[in-house]
């Protein structure tokens, strides 16, 4: 059964049933406008209509603090690798965040393969959830083409009124559907409902900035010395909010943390950010990107230019988190528009 439907009334018991696959994690409201992925035990706590969570689901794939190895200095340089895993089910992941997870998959599968990530990845079941309309004015999923599902899930839910239309993406997804009796076969009227929604979405979701997405890498290359970088650099506080909330920022630092016995300890990795002052500082005290403008430009190039060359993939998912969270109101769409104006890539 590649497609199925689930009556909305069955969501509660479905979420209960999901717990046999692991801890169920879903978006919950932290305030009217703020959401976070957290463990849920009751489907009524799930925010089915939510704007992107403060942190993206990456915290479950590469936690803020993650143990990589343990050691005992009496054994010299010997390290014991550690992967801390648990089975989890991520429910309600929007298409932008599915794209983000796909980006992380690509990066951590690149050589040298990151075993901690890849092992943990296998323990995560992903159930996507379609956005029927824009979350808010910060999103740019129209420009990035991420408002429709493009894989990266075990199951994908679309809210079609009193039922969810469900696309089965993997064998694991198929098992979940087979093991829960309240799924029904998708019939032609269901497909028709879905098609109507998708047609409506195609009308709503348009490029938020009038530029050609496929020319963005070239635009960023040509705009390397553009004035916009100085502008955003002057405003940036280097708080690293934009990178911490980015679903595709994966930079980290590695530290050794000794236990109080001063003999045993663990090696951990911690999220790091190119926006932080010490990030590109080297032993001599020199920094490759001492200026905020250098760092801001680097962040944008790491989304729209460098990864396209290396992985043939944009690392901006259009989720809008960086703009939403910026105290200095450095807006991704405005920055792209300003760069496009300077470089002549803005469509008129």
């Amino acid at each position: 059964m590649e497609y199925a439907v689930l009556p909305k009334s069955a969501l509660g018991s479905f979420v209960d049933a999901l717990r046999q696959y692991g801890k169920v994690i879903a978006p919950v409201a932290k305030s009217e406008r703020h959401f976070a992925f957290e463990e849920v035990t009751d489907a009524r706590d799930i925010a089915l209509k939510y704007i992107p969570t403060i942190l993206p689901p990456k915290k479950y794939f590469m936690p803020q603090y993650e143990t990589l190895a343990e050691y005992d200095i009496r054994e010299g340089q010997k390290l014991y690798p550690v992967v801390e895993v648990e089975h989890i089910v991520l429910f309600g992941v929007h298409t932008c965040d599915l794209a983000g997870i796909q980006c992380l998959d690509v990066v951590f599968s690149d050589r040298p393969k990151d075993l901690n990530y890849l092992v943990r990845r296998g323990y995560v079941t992903i159930i996507g959830l379609e956005c029927n309309e824009y979350c808010d004015q910060y999103a740019s999923c129209g420009l990035m083409g991420t408002f429709l599902p493009q894989g990266g899930y075990d199951l994908f839910f679309t809210d079609l009124g009193d039922y969810f239309f469900v696309h089965v993406g993997t064998q694991r997804g198929e098992d979940i559907v087979a093991n829960f009796s309240l799924f029904q076969r998708a019939e032609s009227r269901h497909f028709w409902d879905l098609q109507l929604l998708r047609a409506k979405k195609a009308e709503i979701f348009r490029p938020e900035v009038p530029v050609d997405r496929f020319l963005l890498p070239r635009m960023f290359q040509e705009g390397f010395e553009a004035k916009v970088w100085e502008d955003v650099g002057n405003r940036c506080l280097s708080c690293a909010n934009c990178t911490n909330v980015c679903p595709t920022c994966y930079c980290f630092d590695v530290k050794d943390v000794m236990n109080l016995d001063l003999r045993t300890g663990k090696r951990i990795r911690v999220w790091d950010s190119c926006q932080n002052e010490p990030f590109a500082k080297i032993a001599s005290g020199e920094s490759f990107r001492a200026e905020r403008s250098d760092r801001k430009r680097h962040r944008f190039n790491r989304k729209f230019s460098y990864p396209v060359k290396r992985y043939n993939r944009f690392f901006c998912t259009g989720c809008g988190r960086c703009s939403r969270v910026c105290m200095a109101k450095i807006d991704l769409k405005e920055t792209i528009a300003q760069l496009a104006r300077e470089t002549g890539y803005l469509k008129v």
Partner: peptide, 10 residues
Amino acid sequence: DVAVCVECKF
């Protein structure tokens, strides 16, 4: 030498 915001976001 980074802002409290970093850990606050974590």
